[in-house]
Computed example of a mutant assay.
Amino acid sequence: MDFKEITSAPINEAYKALRTNLQFCGFIKKFKTLAVVSSNPGEGKTTTVSNLAVVTAKSGIKVLVINADLRKASYVQGLSNYISGFADLKEIITPSRIENLTYIDSGSKPPNPTEILNSKVFSDLVTELKLVYDIIIIDTPAMGSVIDGAIVASLTEGTLIVTSPNKVSFNEFERLKIQLGKAKANILGVAMNNIPKDEYKKYYNRYYDMIEL
């Protein structure tokens, strides 16, 4: 994940508003861990994780981002290597170019990503890192075909759903909510991407009962 300064003023303000709305739900002040999930690839989940982390870190808060999409290999040692016992914690933590923002990549692609995320080692790692960082934001695989995101959501204190009306159907979104409900995830709200300005009110009214942000 490439963390960059947000050069667009409207986008920067939008992510500051997202951070503030999450804070109203208790994020940062009352709890430290946030899973970010989506139904399908291409809905803007990873971009949301990156930009939310940047605006939060730039406010003076110590942020750690974990890439828990173990189905995509990275070129550096990361989460899967640590959980499998092939790397120490200090070997997988990488400072970013943004002050106060640190990153753990996914690591080598394992044969059993779901089992790794469902392990006590991962749960204990998150608990340990909460003692070091002000907040931890965890990026997850799209939940349309795998259960990994729900597992991560069950371990975190809050969950943010990222969706795009151009990438997901209403039924797919409902299935995502049901999965998260079974995992007893604490859904804080929904961040919607790629809404045309002339259709904003239509989508807002349609999803209003599901949106807490």
Rank of each mutant, 00 (worst) to 15 (best):
G26A: 07
F27K: 00
I28H: 00
K30C: 02
K32N: 12
K32C: 10
L34R: 07
A35M: 03
V37E: 00
N40M: 11
N40K: 11
P41H: 10
G42V: 05
E43L: 12
K45Q: 14
S50A: 13
S50Q: 14
N51E: 14
N51K: 15
N51P: 13
V54K: 14
V54Y: 13
V55Y: 07
A57H: 13
S59Y: 05
S59K: 13
S59R: 10
I61C: 02
V63H: 02
L64W: 04
N67W: 05
L70D: 03
R71A: 03
K72L: 02
A73N: 09
Y75S: 01
Y75F: 01
Q77P: 06
L79T: 08
L79E: 10
L79A: 09
Y82A: 06
Y82P: 06
G85D: 09
A87C: 04
D88W: 01
D88C: 08
L89I: 11
K90S: 04
E91Q: 15
I92Y: 02
I93E: 03
T94K: 13
P95R: 09
S96N: 00
S96P: 01
R97T: 15
E99Q: 15
E99P: 11
L101W: 09
T102P: 00
I104E: 02
S108T: 11
S108D: 05
K109W: 00
P111K: 07
N112Q: 08
N112A: 04
T114L: 02
E115N: 06
K120G: 09
K120Q: 14
K120E: 13
F122G: 05
F122R: 04
F122C: 03
L125M: 14
L125A: 10
L125V: 06
V126E: 03
T127S: 09
E128V: 01
L129K: 06
K130V: 01
V132E: 11
V132L: 10
Y133C: 08
Y133V: 11
I136M: 03
I137D: 04
I137S: 10
I138T: 07
D139L: 07
T140E: 04
T140I: 02
T140C: 08
T140N: 07
A142M: 08
M143E: 11
G144D: 06
G144Y: 06
S145V: 15
D148H: 02
A153S: 15
E157F: 08
E157P: 04
T159I: 05
V162R: 05
V162S: 10
V162M: 01
K167A: 14
V168G: 13
V168C: 13
V168F: 11
F170L: 14
F170C: 01
N171K: 15
E172L: 12
F173I: 05
